[in-house]
Amino acid sequence: MHFHKYEKIWLIFGSGSLIVFLMVLGFAAFWKGTHPQSHIETIDPQNIEAHEAFQAENLGLHEVEDGKYIVNIVASAFNYDLGKDENGDIVKTIRVPKGSSVLFQITTRDVVHGFQVAGTNVNMMVEPGHISRFETVLKNNGEFTIVCNEYCGIGHHLMFGTVEVY
């Protein structure tokens, strides 16, 4: 078996590029903690209220300290439950100031869903029996659409919300 001189250079260059990519990703993931969402915590999908975060009164946005927020969400076909406001109205929009650190915590009571805050790096699968959580700093102003990006049934495209960063 024989490799042409140019092919050797090409393969070293190509593999070298791949190693560079992996080093960038690995450094960010293992030293800076920017792994993709991989939360390991299970829950009974038929009794999610057993977990404090997913009890009706705890859903939605909570400020835990200055500039730090938690959002608890229950996904179900075909809705994101973001809790109710003081007047008892259903919340569809979450408003946080720019630069806030927000922890999204979500589970599902039925089928698999997706949870993406479109235009940000918040993008996770939501699976029955598991809790998904992802913390991020919302750096940019704007209105970001929350979409269910994993097919969950014939009303899949009607599952949404909004995150407003002001």
Partner: peptide
């Protein structure tokens, strides 16, 4: 982006 899988194994 799935929960329940160790990120080291993903990597």
């Amino acid at each position: 982006t799935e929960p329940g899988i160790d990120p080291t194994w993903k990597f």
